[in-house]
Computed example of a mutant assay.
Amino acid sequence: MAADYDELRTDVKENQEQSLQALQSASAPTAKSVVLELDETDGLDANGPGGEIVAEELVIQVIPQANDEFTCHSCFLVRHRSQIAREKDGVAYCTDCEG
């Protein structure tokens, strides 16, 4: 007797049909209920992601440019004088920007 190996076994076929019936009978949420649920679980309010305002001051120490440094006119980074690639009309460019 020839066997058809592509055909599903009867127990697997029954199990698939039961799963399909269970999915079809399940009540799907409406679009409005999903939006309402998302709005309820949304934790952001007017104060921002953390929900609180932090009253701390950021303190940064600014160090002035030294005599052996320059500011690149292209990338605006402060570099050491050894990285000057070109200087024209009082404007310097670093080796990274001049490539």
Rank of each mutant, 00 (worst) to 15 (best):
P29L: 01
R9W: 01
A3Q: 09
R81M: 04
A22W: 02
G99C: 02
C97A: 04
H80R: 12
G48D: 08
D4A: 02
V35G: 13
E37W: 07
I63T: 08
Q18Y: 04
T71H: 02
A85N: 00
P29I: 00
G43L: 09
G50L: 12
D96A: 15
D39H: 11
P49K: 15
L77V: 09
E37N: 12
L23Q: 11
Q21A: 15
V78Y: 06
S33Q: 02
D4V: 00
L20P: 01
N47S: 13
Q61M: 09
R81Q: 10
Q65R: 07
H73F: 10
Q61A: 10
P29R: 00
S82W: 02
A55E: 15
L36I: 12
Q16H: 08
L36W: 10
A66K: 05
L77Q: 14
L38Q: 11
E57V: 14
S25C: 05
D6Q: 01
T95C: 05
E40S: 13
G90T: 00
E57K: 06
E69H: 02
E87T: 13
R86G: 04
T41C: 14
D11S: 09
Q65D: 06
V35N: 10
M1I: 04
A22Q: 05
V35A: 11
C75Y: 00
L44C: 04
Q18S: 07
Q65G: 04
D39F: 13
E98W: 03
C72R: 00
L8T: 06
D6T: 04
D89H: 11
L36V: 09
I60W: 10
T95H: 01
K88D: 12
I60T: 11
T71N: 08
S27N: 07
E14I: 03
Q21F: 09
A28Q: 03
D96H: 14
V91I: 15
